[in-house]
Design a protein around this nucleic acid. Structure first.
Length: 196
DNA sequence: TCTCAGATTAACT
DNA sequence: GTTAATCTGAGAC
């Protein structure tokens, strides 16, 4: 499992987001490895009215103004965490929201953390996957390019679907009130583990 | 398909 | 001080 290099994230979020599909999000905690295939992402940048960074830097969003390839984690609606990978090029700030995972390793740990057994109920949404992987503010700013507690890796060559049936579709983003028409949500079309 | 509770962060008045 | 937010789960219909 080799982490994606820093340069991967030194591109516009709308380029990084579709490229993150089929990559592996890895969480290592208490000697347990939890991982999942990324099947749904959304891009946000500082020129984007729907982004947390549109109105400038705050204590909460500062990660998206800093080094790329790090975790931006925020608390939403009073009880859920969501996770972004910071990414940008020629914008003041940017990030890619990881919205859904297909469970690979550590399924039992995910089931424990979520309190549910259904595979399709473990990480099929941004706050669900954060809960399944025990992601909270202690991982804010974690370096995703090093094999640490949280990183993103390219899949092993033998785990790539030989049929090559990967179809990426771009759609409008979910749960935002501005810039609703911008097609910056990217999904592996037909995957069973999308958030909807 | 809809509504609502849950209860932090930050923008806005 | 008020409101809306990159959301989920449960319950009404």
């Amino acid at each position: 499992m080799t982490p994606l290099p820093r340069a991967f994230y030194q591109r516009h979020p709308a380029v990084v987001a579709p490229d993150l599909l089929s990559k592996i999000l890895v969480r290592q905690v208490d000697g347990i490895t939890i991982s999942g295939r990324i099947v749904e992402t959304e891009a946000y940048c500082s020129e984007d009215p729907a982004s947390h960074t549109f109105r400038g830097m705050t204590e909460r969003n500062k990660a998206m103004f800093g080094e790329v390839g790090r975790a931006y984690i925020y608390f939403i609606h009073g009880l859920h965490y969501c996770m972004n990978a910071t990414a940008r090029l020629d914008t003041a700030a940017g990030g890619v929201l990881i919205r859904a995972l297909e469970p690979l390793a550590g399924v039992e740990q995910m089931q424990r953390a979520r309190g549910r057994s259904e595979l399709r109920d473990l990480a099929t949404g941004p706050a669900k996957l954060a809960q399944a992987l025990s992601i909270d503010k202690s991982l804010y700013g974690a370096d995703l390019t090093l094999e640490g507690p949280l990183f993103i890796a390219a899949p092993d060559i033998e785990s790539i679907d030989p049929a090559g049936s990967i179809v990426i579709e771009a759609t409008p983003r979910i749960g935002i009130s501005l810039a609703k028409e911008v097609p910056w949500r990217f999904i592996l079309k037909g995957n069973r583990y999308l958030s909807r």
